[in-house]
Each structure stands twice: as structure tokens, then as C-alpha cells.
Design a protein around this nucleic acid. Structure first.
Lengths: 229, 229
DNA sequence: CGTTGCGTTGAATCTTCTCAAATCAAGTGG
DNA sequence: CCACTTGATTTGAGAAGATTCAACGCAACG
């Protein structure tokens, strides 16, 4: 694990430079996993739970139901921290959408270590709470939103994460395929595609090629997403 | 907040008696909320996040989308600990299904306090991780499972929480109405009812009145729930 | 320039929802 | 104890939304 990676971890957590004492302790704990684009992470199937920090690239957590039924429960962009899901009910795996560098820490040891620094503990908890909230928002989306609302919600949230303001509105380059969008929204690729088309025809978005999207009307897409305006 | 409530909290967290020093510190932090059956909790709409512990009764977290669209993101039974969801995207509220007694702690202060005791910190984190996992399992259910699989999954998980083994199988008395089941599974009450009927006709469950259910065949209900057997 | 994979479109089908009516359970007052 | 009220649940028929299957278009790459 490089100092550079740890610096990114601390910056993401605290917006602070890293205290040297903590660096060395986390360095001793952490593992360093490279995931190739399209590959699943090599995570020892041990019973221990662990915390994952994405230093570079884009990854996804996928739950598997069999019969080719997959549900993406989270997209992880660079600098995202999360708890790897462990469940008796559904097997999960971590996949690289692009080539990734992921830092992993055994959860128990990680918690014990960061508890020593109140600011750090608070920051880590806050990150987990936000991830938890996102997961519950996702439950509301999956349980109650229409296909159009789901796609609009997805675009809104991606725009907040990686969008760039320009003359026409907010532009973004989607780091994920239609299949991955569909797998995260509980839809099929065809339905996602139809909703892209409809949002374009409504003048709410514009598209260019497979991955370029511009949100033309911030208010109307939030309305279409059933989000508070 | 009574000593008895705190004793329950610690027992639920640690399976241990409560250390006196911690009791008094948490006592100072905590608020005590009574929720009447059917009522929403009076939670000051402040920006602070908080942790909730259900000492008595059954409660539910509900996300609201407007147009009467509601999604129950969690049922909380007695002794459950959770983080109250805060989201810019969806308003949430806490409702009593029965009369409830709920202990609430400001999240920041709670985290700071329990960090002093490594065992307690670990136990609290483990609880949060489990709740997080349940939320992600729920995303898989809502995103990819059929109506029958959802209802079978719900019954399986309730049976694990409150079921009692007897001659015929595992019996349970559902603490929630069909509407609440539907609201948590992303279905309508009619569809839930039809799936109850179908599971009964398949000989997988038996029902008695509105709330008594017996799971006759543990393996077949897990199969019907798309759970690993 | 052809191949290959991803994305889009169309038509038919299926599951679940909606709306309406019937039934059941639990309480209330006689 | 019984009729009646009230709210929850069940059942049925038709409608809506999303899926499935199949074909076509487009973009990247050798």
C-alpha cells in the first residue's frame, strides 16, 4: 500500500493531511487489491468482514440471485469508502468496471484503530451513515419508483457526483454501461434505453454517443425523478 | 430514561451487564420517546443525525414519495438498534406499529462516547453492519425478486426473528398488517394477499386468522424465496 | 471493410396494479 | 348471545407498465 493511496484515503475521509502515526498503523492492517476491468475481486472467502476504499477506478458491488439475476447495490467511484456486504441470504461480489485499485481493511481491526482518533472515527461513521442512507434511498427507488423516475434519479445522482456545468446544463460521461445501469435500477437494458429516449424527446436531457449525457433542465429532471425540487 | 431501558440496550448490544460508568454517560445523552400505535415519532427536525434503540414495541421506518407512495425501509422490533435515515432525496419518518418506547441518541455524541469502550464500539459497529447488509439484501429483493419470492423471503426472515418451533413447523404471529408487508416489499396489499393464498395452496404455509402463520416446509419456503438452502 | 458487441426499437406477452365487490374478523350495543 | 358496524383482507376482472424475444442500427477495432 503506497503513501499516495493512504493520502487519498485520508483526504477523502477528513479533508485533512494524514497524521503519520495513523498512517503506519493502517498500513500494517491494509491489503492492496488490483481489479482488472470486468474481473471480480479476489477476496478471501473468510468469515471476516472488511472495509473497502477505492483509490482508483470504478467498481460495483453485485448481489447474485441465480438465473442471471443480478442486482448492483452500489457503484464505487474513486475515493469512496464502504463496508463489503456479507449476507447469508444473497452472495455478493466486487467487480471492476474499469481497472481499479482497492484498499481493504479487516473491519474489526480498522474500527479499533480509528477509534483512537475521535475526528477520524466520526468521519468514518459519517461516511458509513451516508452509504446507509443511500442504500435506503435505493430501497425506496426500487420499491416504489417507475422506470422513468428511476432513470431520472440515476442521472441526477451521477450528475451530482461527476457532472460538469457548462453552457447547456450539466454534462457527464457515464462510467457504466446500460446493463450496469439496468442492474442497479432493477430494470432491463431495453427499458433503460427507452427511458433515455423518452427523456431526450421530452427535452430534459441530451445524449451524444453511448456515454455522453447532458442534463438540460435541472428542475424538470428532478421532477421526473420524484425528487424534492 | 430508566435503568431498565439501558439494561436492555446493553444486553442487546453486548449480551453483557452494563458498566456503570457508561450508563451514566449514555443516560446524559439520550432522549426517551414514546410513540403511540399508529403515530409518527416527534423527532425534532434538526439537522443532527441520531441513533435509535427500540426498547419496547414494534416500529417502522417509512420513506415517502408523495401520491400515497410509501416504502417501509425497516421494521424495528424490541431491542433493535439503528441509524435514523437522513436524506436530501426522500423524507423519512418513524412510526409506531404498536405502542413503542424508543431511546434516541445524537449520533456524534453517541459515537464519541462508545469509542471509549472498544468492545462496545465493536458491538455497535457490528449492529450497524448487519443493518446495512439487511438494507442491501432488501435492494436485491426489491430489484430482482418476484412477488412470491418477496413474500416468502419476508415470512422466512420474520420466522427467524420471532418464530416458534412446534409440531407442524415454525409458527409466528405477524406484528404487521398486510399494508405494512406490502409497503416493505414494494407490492400492493392485493398482491401480498394473493401470494399468501398461493403459498397456502402449495402446502408451504398454513394461516389462521389475519396474523397467525405456520411455515410447514422450511426447505420449500427458502426455495420459493430464492434463498440458499 | 467486415466483425463484434452494445444500444435502440418494435411487437407480443406477462406480471403486477387498479378498481370494484365480496368476505371475514373483531368489536359494540342491545 | 346476537345483530350490526367497521375496518382489514380476499377475490375477480380489466388495464398498465415492464419484460421478453427478435430485429436493426451504430460505434469501436482489427
Amino acid at each position: 500500500m503506497s503513501d499516495n493511496d493512504l493520502q487519498r484515503l485520508f483526504a477523502a475521509l477528513l479533508h485533512l493531511d494524514l497524521p503519520k502515526s495513523m498512517t503506519s498503523r493502517l498500513c500494517a492492517l491494509g491489503g492492496d487489491v488490483d481489479i482488472k476491468c470486468g474481473a471480480a475481486a479476489e477476496l478471501d472467502g473468510s468469515a471476516a468482514r472488511f472495509i473497502a476504499f477505492v483509490a482508483e477506478g470504478v467498481a460495483k458491488f453485485v448481489g447474485h440471485l441465480g438465473n442471471d439475476r443480478e442486482q448492483v447495490v452500489a457503484f464505487l467511484l474513486a475515493n469512496d469508502l464502504t463496508v463489503f456486504p456479507r449476507s447469508d441470504a444473497v452472495p455478493y461480489s466486487l467487480h471492476g468496471i474499469t481497472d481499479c485499485r482497492v484498499l481493504t481493511f479487516p473491519a474489526d481491526a480498522f474500527i479499533r484503530t480509528i477509534a483512537a482518533d475521535p475526528d477520524l472515527a466520526k468521519a468514518v461513521c459519517e461516511h458509513m451513515f451516508v452509504a446507509f442512507d443511500q442504500s435506503r434511498d435505493m430501497s425506496v427507488l426500487l420499491g416504489r419508483k417507475t422506470a422513468q423516475e428511476r432513470v431520472a434519479t440515476f442521472l441526477t445522482s451521477m450528475a451530482e457526483r461527476i457532472g460538469k456545468q457548462n453552457d447547456d446544463g450539466v454534462s457527464l460521461s457515464l462510467p457504466v454501461s446500460r446493463r450496469e445501469i439496468a442492474d442497479s435500477l432493477g430494470l432491463t437494458i431495453e427499458t433503460v434505453s427507452r427511458q433515455f429516449t423518452e427523456l431526450r424527446e421530452l427535452g430534459i436531457i441530451d445524449t451524444n454517443g453511448r456515454s455522453e449525457v447532458t442534463i438540460l433542465d435541472r428542475l424538470r429532471i428532478r421532477e421526473a425523478a420524484a425528487l424534492p425540487c
